[in-house]
Design a protein around this nucleic acid. Sequence first.
DNA 1: AGTAATTACGAGGTACGTAACAATC
DNA 2: GATTGTTACGTACCTCGTAATTACT
Lengths: 280, 280
Amino acid sequence: MELEQMRQLDAIARRGTISAAAEELHISQPALSRSIRRLERELGQELFARTHNSATLNDAGQLAVDHARDLLRDERMMLDAFADLERRQRTLLVGTVAPAPVWHLTALTVERFPGTLLNPVTLPEDEVERRLMNRSVDLAITLRPQILPTMRSTQIMTEDLYAFLPEGHRLATRDTVSFADLDGESFLVLSEVGFWMGMLRRNMPRANIVEQADRSVFEQLVRSTELVCFVTNVTQNSRSGLERVAVPISDADAHATFYLSVLADAPQRVRDIYEWVDGH
Amino acid sequence: MELEQMRQLDAIARRGTISAAAEELHISQPALSRSIRRLERELGQELFARTHNSATLNDAGQLAVDHARDLLRDERMMLDAFADLERRQRTLLVGTVAPAPVWHLTALTVERFPGTLLNPVTLPEDEVERRLMNRSVDLAITLRPQILPTMRSTQIMTEDLYAFLPEGHRLATRDTVSFADLDGESFLVLSEVGFWMGMLRRNMPRANIVEQADRSVFEQLVRSTELVCFVTNVTQNSRSGLERVAVPISDADAHATFYLSVLADAPQRVRDIYEWVDGH
DNA sequence: AGTAATTACGAGGTACGTAACAATC
DNA sequence: GATTGTTACGTACCTCGTAATTACT
């Protein structure tokens, strides 16, 4: 008894005739007919009530189909379990303090390591570092390099913050602005910006920051309100078409340098990615 | 993916090495090795940690073995279900008023219908008839023939009752005895004698009847006590070696004629058996 | 006539066994 | 050296597809 016969039995039960099932299974009608006959011989039971041009399931056949589907269900479970396993093996967990460097990391590695999936987890810096050492993330993206001898770190990118002001804003014509200039205003900020959120709150204690989790809602609000928001040198938002101007922020805190870190004894495939990034 | 590979995986897990499993499966070592490699290719996972002369299950392999055993359990369930089905199909339910005619029926049919199992159910006569019409038994053995036009009946055998008396019993030298002669005595009777039990109680209202369900205990008691018991012309108990004599009982009730009955529209295999018996 | 299933026959492919090889215990 | 697993190679078997046949709608 083989699974192929169970698949055949299921197909016949679903399609109603041996011919239709044979077509579905991409084998000839005689081949399917013979295979089912072999199964009947092995089970010691006719599974179909046959006339010369029809074969319909009898009671034993229905019993066989029910059991066949149990087998196929378990086969599916097994294949799913292995598909999951493979996906997990292709996925690297990346702890990061901000989303942008993961985009960059993905862009850097996607063609060199096809099939590898980077699963970003945005966290506070100390938590990212802790998880790297925990091995609960494979890679870490932080604002400071190597803090332990068992780690390897390399600079991955810098990100510069701009105030994204409505064209009529009082600061829209400036060459640069500072957080001090902006403090007290109302801002619209995406929730998922990592460390930037805390940095903004620290530097503009009197600001009214409206968080928005949904990107499409956020973009609608940017279009339809006068709320100040932020972009960076790597923000891929199409800034054109909007009646806004991006003004560089002069404070040191508005310029972030990100480092990619990995444990020295990480699995080979993780170290391979680190080495690849380090060489660019 | 095929069940054969699941059997192979299970065998390797149980036996510890590919070589031992190959021997168990009656295939060559290379064949098994290749088959497992095919499975690994299909699952996209190595299942064994291999050195040049060993292959031990890794985590993925253990996962595969667990799932394989689920599949094999399903297969076993299916095969068991069909074995059951076949056994049920080979078994005919026989409702009977006494055990002896079923022995006779079995003897008559065993070589003509090999593989057919007769499963006797001893019941009161009206219940036997009711169940035949219910179709909850396939054949009926009763004391009277055909009571409905949809039934066919044929005489199957007669059974004559003898008092089986200790040699020193007051009636042991008689040529015949009657129930009247015996009434008031103590008797030992097997529980499973069907209608005979009720007949004895009716004909000997003052008798002290000791029922015994277990045949070996019964025979021990026959040997070691002076209790009167009964035998018939078809009782296969070895009457020799016992210090007892069998005396015919003269009453009409001590002579039973049994009829085999079947419904006219019973399944062919049931009617075949009836016809065979009818012809003898 | 057309559909659906079975039987016959020849061919092709797959997986087998034998043999050779490699490496560990 | 014995055991265990892998690779190479030739072969045999098994199942497939095509074609012919039967019978039912």
